[in-house]
Amino acid sequence: MSARRNRKPRKKKTPKRSPQKPWFNQQWLDVAVLAAWSLTLFRYWITGKLFLLLHPDYMWLANGAAMVLLAMALFKLIKTIKGQRRVQPAPGHTTLLPPQISSLILLAVAVLGLIYTPRAFASDTAIQRGVSDTLTMTRSQPQRFVRQTSSDERTIIDWIRTLNVYPEPDAYTGQNVKVSGFVIHPDTWPEDYLMVSRFVLTCCAADAYPVGLPVQLAVSRQAYNPDSWLDIEGKMVTATIDGQRQLTIEPTKIETIPEPRNPYEY
């Protein structure tokens, strides 16, 4: 009786695998871990959710990993079905965790990855990451300064980069602007200003940082909910918001758009 009780919790953690022969069980667990991770990566690839996680330059790495993991899962599967034991336990690598625990953690996370759909960061995160303090600051030093782009082709990050190089807002007065981004209502700003913002990625969502431009509204900003996506056309002006002179958009047209498939800028 007590023996059975001892075994139960372990059984729970290893779904659908019968723990009769320990090595057999471990082999199947390996197949499950590899297959589950491969599936998770394939799922992000096919559903396009990878855009929410990675910079497009590195997506081929994740896609490649999905294929390699699938191949490894098949290799392990064939070996396990053939009932072949490992020729020899490979020496060398030791870690903090015993192998069984490692496999279970990996399997659990892969299954979570199959269930969970990543979501783009929203205005809360932007405020928490200090979008208003660092309005005219990017983390990176600008690598290039493309003057020849016409002003209405600049994205939000292009504007911020241009401002980094030449910060005087008056220099841009009257220039056409056409940007899209999500809405933030900064607490310290008056009711007729909102910020149109984007997250910028260098590598992956872990280093996403927000950038934004103020928008001067004719009406209260309550007309545009935080996190809704807007396409804004207008002209640049200089406004004093919260005691700071800032380059601000005076919109001629504001249009609500659905969240883009790829919400970040790079």
């Binding site: 490649g64 990543p118 590598c203």
Partner: peptide, 18 residues
């Protein structure tokens, strides 16, 4: 947000681990 960050780190790191 936490989960998105978590998976973004994993998805970026796993190819290199491989």
């Amino acid at each position: 947000n936490g989960l998105t960050l978590f998976f973004s780190l994993l998805v970026e790191a796993i190819p290199f681990l491989l």
